[in-house]
Write a protein that binds this DNA or RNA. Structure first.
Length: 274
DNA sequence: CGTATGCCCTGCGCGC
DNA sequence: TGCGCGCAGGGCATAC
């Protein structure tokens, strides 16, 4: 499940292959993955465009075009953007193929079809609501303990639900939310407003630490995720709680528990997290 | 407004 | 061995 570290890894691995390339043709094997505009207009506007740069906001990949437009991709659960040779075999669930002017291809593969593309005009027309309302980048100075404290104040929702809200901070998903809360020593089901100043400071620090370390290892791969060159991420062995139900806590040895918080599968150590 | 719930989708692991 | 069920969850729509 691509979260900030995975999307950042895709961005970094795609950039050298896509920068300066012109999109020659687009094959829509599954037009439903195009969210905006209509598939025909999407293809018409994109064919012939040159890719200038690739950015990222939260979990959104922003492929900037020479003409001022932006191709926005969101991978959701199972989306993959991979740069390949034209001759590479078509894997199952390949939905969109971009032919590039050097003979290579950018392919969008998505088993569960949750992800997709928005093509924004030069003035941002077509921007998805979620991107518009995105909170600060967790690795930017704007995301600081004071900001986090202000956002958690008065919230009765579980702290995990709060930090998963992309309007509060952009890019945390289920894996790194659980990991951050473990590192901070805070139980995921605690009311957001109940956290002390010290706990908020630890949580802020933990979010940044876990994201930076995960980026350094090019993300977490279970079975599906791969970066823009098709390589798995290496953070799996660094996970402290996620996907470790029943396994001994790496700090205290107590078995990791799994519950549901805010409708999401949630992992934590009942001994290390208060 | 804040909070909670269900839906989209496919593959996989589980129980029988 | 096969079948049906529940689960996986990001973002959004809907309800209260």
């Amino acid at each position: 499940m691509p979260e900030l570290p995975e999307v950042e890894s895709v961005r970094r691995t795609l950039l050298p292959h896509l920068q300066g390339r012109r999109i020659r043709r687009i094959h829509l094997l599954k037009p439903g993955q195009i969210r905006y505009p209509e598939p025909d207009a999407f293809v018409a506007q994109l064919e012939g465009e040159r890719i200038e740069d690739i950015g990222r906001r939260g979990k959104y990949l922003l492929i900037r075009l020479e003409g001022g437009g932006v191709l926005v991709a969101h991978l959701r659960m199972s989306g993959r953007l991979v740069h390949t040779d034209r001759e590479a075999p078509l894997v199952k669930h390949t939905h969109v193929i971009f032919d590039l002017d050097d003979g290579t291809q950018l392919r969008y593969v998505d088993m569960r079809t949750f992800g997709g593309f928005h093509l924004l005009g030069p003035h941002g027309e077509g921007t998805p609501a979620g991107l518009q309302e995105l909170g600060p980048e967790p690795l930017d100075p704007e995301f600081n303990p004071e900001y986090l404290a202000g956002k958690l104040a008065g919230k009765r929702a579980p702290v995990k639900a709060a930090i998963l809200d992309q309007r509060l901070v952009a890019g945390l998903g289920n894996i790194y939310a659980d990991e951050s809360l473990f590192l901070a020593g805070v139980r995921p089901d605690r009311e957001a407003q109940s956290l002390t100043g010290a706990e908020i400071a630890r949580l802020h620090r933990s979010c940044i630490d876990v994201l930076q370390r995960a980026i350094a290892k090019r993300g977490t791969t279970f079975s599906l995720y791969a970066d823009g060159e098709g390589n798995a991420g290496d953070f799996y062995d660094d996970l402290q709680v996620y996907e470790r139900k029943g396994a001994p806590c790496k700090v205290c040895g107590h078995p990791i528990e799994k519950t549901r918080v805010g409708g999401r599968g949630t992992h934590y150590c009942p001994q290390c997290q208060a």
